[in-house]
Nucleic acid binder design. Structure first.
Lengths: 356, 356
DNA sequence: CTGAAAGCGCTAACAG
DNA sequence: CTGTTAGCGCTTTCAG
């Protein structure tokens, strides 16, 4: 493997414990010895073996990133099977960038694992990195897991943060975008533009985030005295295809839709397709607002007005929360951090001029 | 940490070496003892500590995934700074799915790290996971690295595979799509459609893949006796924005472009924008063909004809090559695996009818 | 402030 | 086929 702490100790004329003290820069080393040891470390280009440190300190200095993808199978596999991409990967990837920024800074490794479908409690679902004590903490990214799954994971007593979603019970620390607030913003924006009959393409009803968005929808309606009409609501599964189908149905059931809120950028692509197929124009005939503000939004035609999720910031916050959690002896009440969204106005919505 | 090999040994009434033999299912254990030990392992829910195994076997059972992003900085950071996404993350992410499939199957962990900008040789650029012997092999995903960077990495004597790119010298194992063949396919398709004046938006000239595409372009021209015209070529940096700028310039310099090959789906989005701004239609006025066949292609308007890269398969192949490489004692000649591309015809190209 | 000694959890000869 | 013994490379008491 190469050069060890013994080599350094010998060469520096000190004991290996002293070298160890230097490596972990403990204060109890005299400036002189420290300097000498550091010099040798540089000369030999010595790096402590992480595994050896892990075994003695009981800390791996690794954290796990567990992505939970909504589809029941690997999307790329599905894509080659069906000939088209069903899912637009962007949330976890962007969040990961924020997380990595933080883990790199702290010298931690980031272990990835992906799970597909809706996760329920089953020992099989426990990632090996946990079972084999290969990570000190876990980031759970995505929303399609059950409460029982989290409960089971917690039995392993590993510090854990939910990223991008949360549990109704708030029994685990979590950081996520303000989905209900964001949906509220979206609807209020549309309402202020003069619309009262606003269609809503939500995500799958099994996810907490879709539930939250629905709450935002409902309270916006309530605040403005608009009656809820279930004919105006459809659910997709985050894929573009499902957005297409949902919009199609919506247009069929309602002749007079002039505005629609789509719960996720990816579905907006499909929704647009359905709109265009009907010979309708955006925003002249239909205003559309979406959620997430992924890079798609800027390059949408017309540029898409969206509720922006600060994914990078969520990743940063999640990593920091996890490090905090890991350094704490005893867990207190689970923390919940909600990152505000932001209305980004582009060109896909306009004032309603008259009813159809 | 929990329960150790000693606990199992004690409970099963055997020595820990026997337990070890069972764990690594060596043949030399009698069926009876094995059964007994396995039973205890289950009862106690014992899992060997990976770090301890790593220290004795000198194998971490982890492999590293090093993504090299073209931008000099974190794209998400850039996005929040500039207010729009510059880069479309999809290649590395999709490749990762194939890799993970394989690593999961073999019980390996996958460590991620991302580097930004063009990588040159500098000790700073060596990822900690390598320096600290935290991975048994490395997958280098992306194309913006220099030959010297690879040379430096190889000094660490770590098995390494280039994924999605290659070195002119072929001094490292690599697996990548047939960029030159793919570009050839694209141009020949356009030529067969009747075009002879074909614009080309390539990637950055510093990347090997762009060089390859250029080769494909050149040989297609040569085969069909078309003269190379530098006014028809522009380079972007893979971002949508750069595609927009390149197309804009192309349209300005050449009044009569009727077909364009864009070296990457992400740039096609920008190119389209420039085309539409000119009041031109796709494919009526301009045919456009792109490279990669990411999910964008299906949802492009009109659906984008592309040269498809089999990213999932590349990931699978890369992982397998790495495992092979790791199991070999002495490295032979570097292997080079080229994954063929495929022409996927959709609606963004049509036969040329007449010159403008 | 530094060194000696013990030990983390596991694997790997080597006897028997 | 199984147990004993000796480490792997590091951290951590605990003397001095």
């Amino acid at each position: 493997m190469g050069i060890t702490i013994n080599d350094v100790a010998k060469r520096a004329g000190v004991s290996k414990s002293t070298v160890s003290l230097v490596i972990n820069n403990r204060p109890s080393v005299s400036a002189d010895t420290k300097e000498a040891v550091v010099k040798v470390i540089k000369e030999l280009n010595y790096k402590p073996l992480k595994a050896a440190q892990a075994i003695t300190t009981k800390k791996t200095k690794n954290i796990g990133f567990m992505e939970i993808v909504a589809t029941h199978e690997n999307p790329e596999k599905l894509a080659t099977k069906y000939g088209f991409s069903t899912m637009i990967p962007t949330f976890a990837y962007d969040v990961a960038r924020g997380i990595e920024e933080e883990t790199q800074k702290r010298g931690y490794g980031l272990l990835f694992t992906t799970y597909y479908g809706r996760l329920r409690a089953s020992v099989r679902a426990v990632p090996p990195m946990i079972k084999h004590y290969w990570v000190d903490g876990l980031l759970l990214v995505g929303g399609t897991f059950s409460e029982s799954f989290i409960k089971m994971l917690k039995k392993w007593k590993i510090p854990l943060i939910l990223v991008g979603s949360h549990l109704p019970s708030y029994s685990a620390d979590c950081v996520f975008a303000d989905y209900s607030g964001g949906a509220f913003q979206a609807f209020e924006y549309l309402i202020n533009l003069g619309y009262s009959k606003i269609a809503f393409i939500n995500g799958p009803s099994t996810t907490q985030t879709s539930f939250d968005k629905m709450q935002g929808y409902l309270s916006a309606l309530q605040k403005h005295g608009i009656k809820f009409d279930e004919k105006l609501v459809e659910a997709g599964d985050f894929s573009a295809q499902s957005g297409y189908e949902a919009m199609h149905k919506l247009l069929k059931k309602n002749k007079d839709i002039r505005a629609v809120f789509v719960g996720f950028d990816g579905m907006a692509i499909g929704a647009k397709k359905a709109i265009v197929e009907k010979g309708l124009r955006i925003p002249e005939d239909i205003s559309i607002i979406s959620f997430e503000d992924s890079w798609i939004a800027t390059h949408f035609d017309p540029p898409l007005t969206t509720i922006k999720i600060f994914k990078y910031e969520i990743g940063l916050a999640a990593a920091n929360m996890l490090f905090d959690l890991m350094s704490i002896q005893k867990a207190g009440k689970p923390k919940k951090v909600v990152i505000p969204t932001e209305l980004v106005i582009r060109d896909s919505c306009r004032k309603m001029e008259r009813e159809v």
